[in-house]
């Protein structure tokens, strides 16, 4: 069977002492293409932050397996970028080379070719010198996908990559996701469009704070499971007690 890329052992992630992801066990297989779905507030983004390592688990461990010096490539929800900063599209995309050039390394001719290829792959040729403030939402997302391409990471995490993106851009970017899958990279994407998940994502994790179902997409997205996920209580209990469930 295929190797494991990301392993969760009794993982609880949250803010303060409030869990947003509660007691998650399981693994994401290497080279798999997984969708993470669930209602708002279900802990989907939190889960990605935990995998990237910007949020430490309150309990349990998240392990990235397969020794690699290249860090996980992560596309957060778009709002976190300062669009008013005077930076060109070219420079934004070139940041993807960070893991190789680091703080001080130069950008050589080979790297420039790579940057141009990435821009071409997302259809942004001619946009190189444009300030990022002039990009539309879809063009910005294309630029960020170009940056992901350059990061050349074996593990790619996408947080709602197609929200508020038009059909053509979505189709183009989804092709890149398929290409990554074909290149045996491990891709995990938070999504809301269940039709797209059924069409393009073989594996699905349905989560509503606690994992509801995880496995083959057609099994996970059953009417019964979706109803269960929808029943998740969104508000937290102000008088919640300490959780004593065992971590494993």
């Amino acid at each position: 069977m295929s190797a494991t890329a990301i392993r969760f052992d009794g993982v609880t992630l949250g803010y303060g002492r409030r869990p947003a992801v509660h007691h998650l066990n399981g693994e994401i297989a290497a080279s798999s293409l997984t969708a993470v779905v669930g209602p708002n507030g279900a802990g989907k983004s939190t889960l990605l932050k935990g995998i990237v390592g910007t949020l430490r688990p309150l309990e349990g461990h998240i392990r990235l397996i397969g020794a690699s010096n290249v860090p996980v490539a992560y596309l957060p929800q778009a709002a976190e970028i300062d669009r008013s900063f005077p930076l060109s599209v070219y420079d934004l995309v070139a940041m993807g080379l960070w893991s190789r050039s680091g703080l001080f390394g130069g950008v050589g001719r080979k790297d420039r070719t790579k940057i141009e290829e990435a821009l071409a792959a997302v259809g942004l040729i001619g946009f190189e010198r444009r300030p990022i403030s002039t990009l539309s939402g879809g063009q910005m997302q294309r630029a960020l996908f170009a940056r992901l391409l350059l990061q050349d990471s074996p593990v790619i995490l996408l947080d709602e990559p197609f929200t508020a993106i038009d059909a053509r851009t979505t189709a183009d970017l989804l092709d890149l996701v398929r290409r990554w899958h074909a290149e045996s990279r491990t891709v995990v994407a938070v999504l809301h469009d269940l039709d797209m998940v059924k069409r393009a994502f073989p594996k699905t994790l349905l989560i509503a704070r606690e994992p509801v179902a995880w496995g083959e997409t057609q099994d996970v997205l059953s009417a019964e499971n979706l109803l269960k996920a929808r029943r998740m209580v969104e508000a937290y209990d102000p008088h919640a007690h300490e959780c004593h469930r065992s971590a494993a």
């Binding site: 490539a73 957060p76 970028i81 900063f85 934004l92 960070w98």
Partner: peptide
């Protein structure tokens, strides 16, 4: 310095 202004989340994910 530039990266921290434009996209602090990205900087945190790579460094």
């Amino acid at each position: 310095l530039v990266l921290e202004c434009v996209d602090p989340t990205f900087l945190r994910s790579v460094s």
